[in-house]
Amino acid sequence: MSATLTLLHDGRSDEVAVADPARPAIPADALEATLGWALQPEGLCQGPMCVPVDQDALVGDDGIDLGVFADALQRPLVTDEKHAVAALGASHHDRGEALASLQAPDFTLPDLDGNPHSLSGQRGKKVLLVAYASW
């Protein structure tokens, strides 16, 4: 049995083939292509950075268990089985480390006309960042 899982992550959405959407697992090459993490003898690696991981738990018959992957990176993974969709959030550790460095996290967002603007495009100016809402 095979299904397509919609994986929401890093502000994107990707479709990946899984055997069981309730406990999604994907092949190592799909993990690298989709999430940018490669399975190496040292663990899970992204560029020069590697995170040690229990490879017996991580790799099963269907590929890399996304739940174990998420736990290893301290990222939340929440799923909706009925609609075969999962959201892989950001690690509080990564977010906290970035904020504690005091370097303001960069972002690119559209204006009303759809034109993208980045915080880093304002380098050289003092910036008042204001998050607001109509609600």
């Binding site: 972002f107 008042l128 960042l129 809402a133």
Partner: peptide, 18 residues
Amino acid sequence: DLYGMINVPTVVWIDEEG
């Protein structure tokens, strides 16, 4: 998500070096 904001309005001051 990036800034850990839990309500609005929230303001952050960012200097010339980001």
